[in-house]
């Protein structure tokens, strides 16, 4: 129980630094807008960042796995696309990887 309430000072420090940085990104645009003009070109570059970073994480992670992981990733994607339900997609993916590892 006491474990769940642990607050390591360094961890808290990192979390608060993340929070401050994120808050600056949230208010930064509104604040800067009266001062600078963001070009469409720069805007296009920034808007691809979230997807690109997700892919940059996912690619090497899946490359380290084998056919069972690739099949499970495909299953997760299919369920997510069909249902739009993240929990369902995750359950399918995790159940899938267990099944595929047993078979493949």
């Amino acid at each position: 129980m006491s474990d769940a309430l642990t607050l390591d000072p360094l961890v808290v420090g990192v979390i608060l630094a993340m929070a401050v940085l994120t808050f600056f990104t949230k208010i930064g645009g509104l604040w800067l807008l009266s001062r600078f003009e963001v070009s469409d070109r720069l805007e296009a570059g920034i808007s691809v960042l979230p997807g690109a970073i997700v892919i940059a994480i996912l690619g090497p992670e899946l490359a380290e796995g084998g056919p069972p992981e690739w099949a499970a990733a495909g299953l997760t994607l299919a369920v997510m696309w069909r249902t739009g339900n993240i929990l369902l997609a995750l359950i399918a993916g995790v159940a899938g990887v267990v099944a595929f590892r047993a078979v493949m």
């Binding site: 979230p50 997807g51 997700v54 892919i55 996912l58 499970a72 994607l77 993916g93 995790v94």
Partner: peptide, 30 residues
């Protein structure tokens, strides 16, 4: 199979972040 949950979360995130053909080139580059 919980070790796979992170990959699964990112697959789901990717599905939501996909914006059609305009995502194709940046994603291949990434």
């Amino acid at each position: 199979g919980i070790d796979f949950i992170l990959a699964a979360v990112f697959v789901a995130l990717a599905a939501e972040l996909w914006e059609g053909r305009s995502s194709l080139v940046p994603w291949i580059v990434a």
